[in-house]
Design a protein around this nucleic acid. Structure first.
Length: 480
DNA sequence: TGAAATGTTGGGGCG
DNA sequence: ACGCCCCAACATTTC
């Protein structure tokens, strides 16, 4: 028996609360089929991350549990979405498809094909960012912004969409009786190995708890806290520092509207101007997130090459061994190695550390930024094409708003500045655990350095000159 | 959301 | 007392 119904297709919006497309689907008052499609494309490729997939699967479990309270289950199917959706419509008689937009080139193309193919209305909603690419956020001359500061100014001026309270109307979900449900696969089912051991707790309940925790205290020290390298940002209770909300935002266990609303409330609760400044800085991180989604949407070439295409001429080095040492956290620069080992073991890296290791790969080793960009995607729970690409190109000096190419981080001064007592290093580089805060940032200067830790793989002074020369040469070539 | 090189200033040691 | 030098601290320029 086929009843009228609609489908909500979950993609990177794994939550029931404040979900724009889901809310619209429920408002039809027709039973809603909650669907997730595990596209084989998601399970391979050079940006595939076993750990991120593991986190996603746990997110599906959490979502499924949430749906049980509404008298249904999450419908999971494995296969190409075009085919799955086509079959679903035939099986269930669904009369419309609801989903939240994704702005990556792959997703836009896929969704366009699907809209052409299905023969039922496909309703797509802006949900992933606070202000979607489109009319409302363009420059005076109706062009996309390519510089963050004016983008942010405009972004702040626009009224922010509200988050709904998260209430789901009654039992309006489809019961799924007689509909085949593959259920949520295990990692073993998918033959996925090499995932990190300790994932953060998945699901919107945990995401909201962390948001509440962060925006009730640590957010007020964010101005300084965000730059202090901390080994355990995900401990419970959360130490001061970063919010560690990125994995939740990445897969939509939390919406940016929920994040913004909580920060906006915090703005009212701050004790003084300094508190409010911290909150504003955190809010601007949400603007960065939107900004890079816009950049990828408007300038899809950044996915393949430098935003500033002149820098494609730089003669980068291709040294597989050097690249591998960077990946493994064996560069001989303690803060770089600590950061890489943090990412390798917990699937997350402090943002300050991301800048340090990105500078090291692109400037000290002079390796093309895409190598680092790919590796981050393989390891990060929050790995997102748009934000990660933007961050890498910013560090490499090839992107929008980029720091000039000659801004080269000194790994030792960064280390002294942001890990002054060396605890971040000690936590992830146990070989150096016993060194003093004076020695730990450059152990090679000791008369007898630890034998189980490598000497620096490259001399920073030499590397700096080499990179300046390479970038200068690329610029010179342009003027000829 | 840089760091190094170079320039300037001013306090203090010293003949 | 004075000029000279050194050098730290800060500012500016350069990459």
């Amino acid at each position: 028996m086929i009843d009228p119904c609609v489908i909500h297709w979950f993609r990177r919006d794994l939550r029931l609360g404040d979900n724009t497309a889901l809310r619209a689907a429920l408002q039809t008052t027709q039973p809603v089929i909650p669907l997730f499609v595990l596209d084989p494309v998601l399970l391979k490729g050079e940006r595939f991350s076993p750990s991120r997939m593991a986190f996603l699967l746990q997110g599906l479990v959490a979502l499924d549990n949430g749906l049980k309270n509404h008298g249904t289950r999450l419908l999971v199917r494995l296969g190409k979405p075009q085919i799955i959706l086509h079959d679903m419509i035939r099986e269930t008689g669904a009369s419309a498809l609801y989903a939240n937009r994704d702005y990556t080139p792959y997703a836009v193309k896929r969704d366009h094909e699907i809209a052409e193919l299905l023969g039922i209305p496909v309703y797509l909603f802006d949900d992933l960012v606070l202000h979607a690419p489109g009319q409302e956020l363009l420059t005076g001359s109706n062009k996309p912004y390519t510089v963050f500061t004016p983008f942010k100014k405009k972004w702040l001026d626009l009224p922010k969409p509200d988050a709904d309270g998260g209430a789901i109307p009654g039992r309006q979900f489809h019961k799924l009786d007689g509909v085949d449900n593959n259920g949520i696969p295990s990692l073993k089912d998918l033959k996925i190995t090499d995932t990190i051991v300790d994932l953060p707790p998945a699901g919107e309940t945990h995401a909201k708890a962390r948001l509440k925790d962060f925006t009730s205290s640590a957010i007020f020290q964010y101005a300084d806290g965000r730059d202090r390298l901390i080994a355990h940002p995900f401990a419970d209770p959360a130490p001061r520092g970063t919010s560690y909300l990125s994995p939740y935002l990445r897969i939509g266990m939390l919406s940016p509207r929920q994040a913004y609303a909580a920060a906006h409330d915090a703005l009212k609760n701050g004790d003084d101007a300094e508190d409010r400044r911290s909150v504003e800085i955190w809010i601007s991180e949400l603007a960065w997130r939107d900004f890079y989604h816009h950049i990828l949407a408007y300038f899809p070439h950044v996915y393949e090459r430098s935003f500033q295409e002149d820098y494609e001429r730089v003669e980068y080095r291709t040294d597989a061994e050097d690249l591998q040492r960077w990946k493994d956290g064996q560069t001989g620069y303690p803060v770089v190695d600590a950061a890489m080992r943090q990412m390798n073991t917990v699937g997350w890296m402090h943002n300050r550390a991301r800048m340090i290791v990105a500078s090291f790969l692109t400037k000290d080793l002079l390796i093309y930024w895409r190598e680092g960009e790919k590796y981050f995607m393989q390891k990060l729970l929050d790995g997102d094409i748009a934000a990660n690409n933007g961050g890498w190109q910013w560090s490499a000096g090839t992107g929008t708003d980029a720091q000039p190419y000659f801004r080269i981080f000194n790994p030792v001064s960064q280390s002294r500045q942001y890990d002054p007592n060396g605890d971040y290093i000690r936590h992830y580089v146990p070989e150096l655990r016993d060194l003093s805060e004076k020695d730990i940032h450059e152990p090679w200067k000791l008369t007898s350095p630890p034998k189980n830790y490598p000497p620096p793989m490259v001399d920073h002074g030499m590397a700096r000159e080499r990179t300046l020369d390479a970038f200068k040469a690329a610029r010179k070539e342009k003027t000829l």
